[in-house]
Amino acid sequence: MSEFEPNIIGFLCNWCSYAGADLAGTSRMKYPANIKTIRVMCSGRVDPVYILEALKKGADGVLVAGCHPGDCHYQSGNYKANRRMKLLKTMLVELGLEPERVRFEYVSASEGKKYADLILEMTEEIKRLGPNPLKKII
């Protein structure tokens, strides 16, 4: 059997994290191709419903990345996103899902290396967890 390749959805804020991911690319840093990125204007734009929907449709992991504290271009979107993700995770645990499948991280435009390392680490972690168990029941 071939190795399980996780399908990870990444919502990246336009101003910092997407630029960080871009930098990783233009600097030719290597990281797993398991992440499928979606650019959003701000991490605060990511509705918990998107994450629930991604998980239901079979994503093995979901990453939301935004600007560092103090750097959000809309002032407080990243703080909101952080709290939403924490609350969502406590609920995902009640639904029997591993909270590690869902992550919120700060990645700035200059942190190409951090982004590449993060994707590697997250991919490895989800490989350990195995496929999203919802795929079998929904």
Partner: peptide, 18 residues
């Protein structure tokens, strides 16, 4: 809204600890 809980998480987390 598609999901009552998702909507409430969003609303509550936006105003909690602001």
């Amino acid at each position: 809204s598609l999901d009552q809980g998702g909507k409430m998480i969003s609303s509550l987390a936006s105003i909690l600890g602001v």
